[in-house]
């Protein structure tokens, strides 16, 4: 039954991807992800409990307001070592959002203590992740057991959700060896 539901969702979503995500910070410093769905977006609407749009809180992760090695690496290597891979079923994203064990980054991230806020170079790095010109691609990271910033898992672009790849081997990437 679950498989059937999943396949059904996949079919519907893949055929009409229209989902918008954005970050908001409330006046009491809570980080929210704003999800807005199109009319035929059933998975999205299910997530939003029947509404066309909803907000879900993203808990501030441990040591994310800092320059940990992982956080520095993320901003430094975005679009270089961290690149977009295959397209994913958007269901994956909602699954991620439901589990509440994620951290999102954009070029306008408050967690970016490494570079200037929404700088041109950072925007360029993030935008290079999406081929469709998405203004603010959102990269989803998981959290470690201790609630700290983990590894990148998915990228939301206007045209869909994509898997994240960490470049490390020329065999699977465009890195050149001769």
């Amino acid at each position: 039954m679950r498989v059937f539901f999943f396949l059904l969702c996949s079919f519907i979503v893949l055929n009409s991807f229209a989902l918008n995500l954005s970050t908001e910070w409330t006046m009491v410093s809570r980080k929210m992800i704003h999800v807005s769905c199109e009319e035929d977006e059933t998975v999205c609407q299910n997530f939003c409990q029947g509404h066309m749009a909803c907000m879900t809180e993203e808990k501030v992760c441990k040591n994310c307001v800092g320059t940990s090695i992982a956080m520095t690496y993320a901003f430094q290597e975005m679009g270089r070592s961290i690149v977009a891979g295959d397209q994913l079923d958007p269901y994956f994203l909602f699954d991620f959002l439901s589990q509440k064990n994620y951290v999102t980054l954009t070029s306008r991230s408050v967690y970016n203590l490494v570079d200037s806020f929404d700088s041109m170079s950072l925007r360029r790095k993030f935008r290079s992740l999406c081929q469709d010109g998405t203004r603010y691609p959102m990269v989803f990271f998981n959290k470690t057991e201790g609630g700290e910033f983990g590894r990148a898992q998915a990228i939301w672009c206007d045209s869909g959700v994509f898997q994240v790849e960490y470049l490390s081997s020329p065999q699977s990437t465009e890195v050149e060896v001769f």
């Binding site: 501030v60 040591n63 967690y111």
Partner: peptide
């Protein structure tokens, strides 16, 4: 009003 944000400070 910065409580949630500060919980992320190292």
């Amino acid at each position: 009003p910065f409580g949630p944000l500060f919980t992320g400070v190292n």
